[in-house]
């Protein structure tokens, strides 16, 4: 029995072109007896069709069913995640967004964050606080303590860069920055949602 064991581990995510066939070897790592390995890797799992818009979730149950149909003598051990998200990438969306679109978003963020910091300064009476700090340190009442405020403004930019761990493309150290972690978590949440919802729909369709 143990000689005929097949160990199956689904990958996290797989990208395909529309209308292509998904084979087992593409979506999973396999350890199997040598005589079966090639046939297993070429086992047809799923045909992408037009109804699957962006994503298909393939459940390991579906894969095991296919395997037992074609290789009834094998004993299948599925380890790792119970499903894989197959992302369908039409050739049209492969290209990068237009430079104008990027510039547009850039300006939104630039103006928006500038406005946000002004609102913040008003909200917390930063002007009064700066005047007060200037007075407490020097003993002089000054209407516009620019000597304090200009370094403060530059410091805001430096602080953001420090927080996100990037000086343009150069990283300050090797660990992932909060932004990278946040992108990862966001993707993981999306995946979790997709796995739960799309999967159920698939099952309903088949019944």
């Amino acid at each position: 029995m143990s000689q005929d064991a097949v160990y199956l581990r689904l990958r996290n995510r797989y990208f395909v072109n529309p209308n292509s066939k998904v084979l087992l070897g593409e979506i999973a790592q396999i350890i199997a007896p040598e005589q079966h390995e090639k046939a297993l890797k070429r086992l047809f799992i799923y045909q992408i069709n037009k109804e699957d818009e962006h994503l298909v979730v393939i459940d390991s149950m579906h894969i095991i069913k296919k395997l037992t149909e074609h290789f009834p003598q094998l004993h299948i051990e599925s380890i790792g995640s119970p499903q894989i998200i197959v992302e369908i990438i039409p050739s049209s969306t492969k290209k990068k967004p237009h430079a104008i679109a990027v510039a547009f978003v850039w300006i939104i963020l630039f103006v928006g964050s500038g406005l946000a910091i002004m609102n913040f300064h008003h909200d917390v009476s930063m002007e009064e606080v700066h005047k007060r700090i200037y007075y407490l340190i020097t003993g002089i009442h000054k209407k516009d303590p620019l000597i304090l405020q200009i370094p403060y403004s530059l410091g805001i930019g430096l602080g953001m860069i420090l927080f996100f761990n990037h000086v343009f493309k150069k990283k300050i150290n090797e660990e992932p920055s909060p932004l990278e972690v946040e992108m990862f978590l966001y993707q993981q949440n999306l995946d979790q949602y997709v796995v739960l919802n799309e999967n159920e729909q698939n099952r309903k369709k088949k019944q």
Binding site: S113, A116, I117, F120, H130, I133, Y134, I137, T138, P145, I147, L148, Q149, I150, P151, Y152, S153, L154, G155, I156, G157, L158, G159, M160, I161, L162, F163
Partner: peptide, 16 residues
């Protein structure tokens, strides 16, 4: 105040 201002700015930048 240049020093105080810079440090205050860095902190606010990190907050933002």
């Amino acid at each position: 105040t240049v020093i105080i201002g810079s440090f205050a700015g860095i902190f606010v930048g990190m907050l933002a």
